[in-house]
Amino acid sequence: MPKNSKSKNSNEGKRDFLIVSTYTIAGIGAAAVAWPLIDQMNPAADTLALASTEVDLSSLEEGQAITVTWRGKPVFVRHRTPEEIKLAKQVSLDDMRHPERDEDRVPNEKYIVLVGVCTHLGCVPLGQKSGDVKGQYGGWFCPCHGSHYDHSGRIRKGPAPTNLEVPSYKFLSDNVIKIG
């Protein structure tokens, strides 16, 4: 087959392009298949549907606390006494590791709502039951590594780096909150 070298070269170029693009397309296909296999481990539709919880606080007396489950984690709700509210508000921010004003953590000062998971390594702090150790600052105390939280759930002493997390929630009425 007589061919001049120029057309042969361009043919080879076309040939290589065809082969490279074939394997590239195949590779893209293989990569696309990975996504469903990875995404199936993300929360499923039924799990996401349970991502919010409503809590009725009307029976919660002053000084009492309840723990509710939200997204598989404990959420602390405490009905604070005027004394506790005063203590939470008057602390100077300079004394804190993670300075936050009480007003910024509670939309309704009577109720403090916290994710009950220590920000250190994920243990559940004590302080919900009346007989519990509440720590030096009267809030919560994590027994695992000794973190002390105050009446606003702020870290005051111990290894935890940040304050107890406030979940996103809103008051649907005076006594009902919706968490999540």
Partner: peptide, 13 residues
């Protein structure tokens, strides 16, 4: 059926 309905791409897998 949960795989078919709720798990992400579960029906495909």
């Amino acid at each position: 059926e949960r795989i078919m309905r709720d798990v992400n791409h579960g029906w495909l897998i």
